[in-house]
Write a protein that binds this DNA or RNA. Structure first.
Lengths: 125, 125
DNA sequence: CCGAATCCACCTTGATACTG
DNA sequence: CAGTATCAAGGTGGATTCGG
């Protein structure tokens, strides 16, 4: 008998989220959209990211095969990052989500305000 | 002078992720795809979810205006959930991501194996 | 039947300091 | 320049228990 037909481990959607739902991942991918770019340049482009988080995010993207890393061992070292074709194939889908957000996020924000207001109108005293 | 052109707070993409990137959110939305459904039925459909997480996820979805909640105050109480039109408008985009995952996740898994293997081949002793 | 409240383990993030 | 190491702090998910 089948009681549960939705499984976390099977759902492929959650696998994508696993990849792109970290705090900085999407922004790093955006920074890479224009082509090959150096580590420091990414850091300059993304407001508020720390070295640790940028390094960690890039490493994860590299592990997932979405980004390739090229080191030029000079002094000072040059490390460049590029989206792989796999990484590029994900961009259109991210754009669609972004467009959904642009079109509907105001509704979400409004819904949140109304929801929160329905509690605040009955304060404790 | 403009130094950082990618901002976390401005990027609308991150706003969507904020909504749907929780561990259970996507699965709950899937459970609601077929139409109105009761709390207990959702819980049965989703493998491994706890009451706490289901309640929390539904509350958040309701706050975001993606799901509507209808209580029938009987004994025992009946609580039904339905996707709003806003919630339904998000489904096609989620499906696209899911299709990307189905098509490309094997590549990601392979990339991870290779990446991890490149470290394990030089163990400590 | 539906959900709130508590406690707890884990993971993620971030600040800071150091290396080649 | 491009990282790594360490530590502190907050958030998140889960087990359990209680309530209407």
């Amino acid at each position: 008998m089948k009681t549960a037909d939705i499984s976390l481990t099977i759902c492929s959607y959650t696998h994508v989220l696993e990849i792109i739902s970290n705090k900085w991942t999407a922004l790093v991918i955006y920074a890479l959209e224009d082509g090959t770019i150096r580590y420091g340049e990414i850091k300059n482009r993304i407001e508020g990211i720390s070295q640790k988080m940028l390094t960690q995010t890039l490493k994860q993207l590299e592990r997932d095969g979405l980004v390739s890393r090229k080191v030029t061992p000079k002094v000072p070292p040059i490390v460049e990052y590029t989206l792989t074709s796999l990484g590029e194939s994900l961009i259109p889908h991210m754009r669609m989500l972004k467009e959904w957000a642009a079109a509907h996020y105001a509704q979400v924000a409004l819904a949140r305000e109304e929801y929160d207001a329905s509690f605040n109108q009955t304060p404790i005293e």
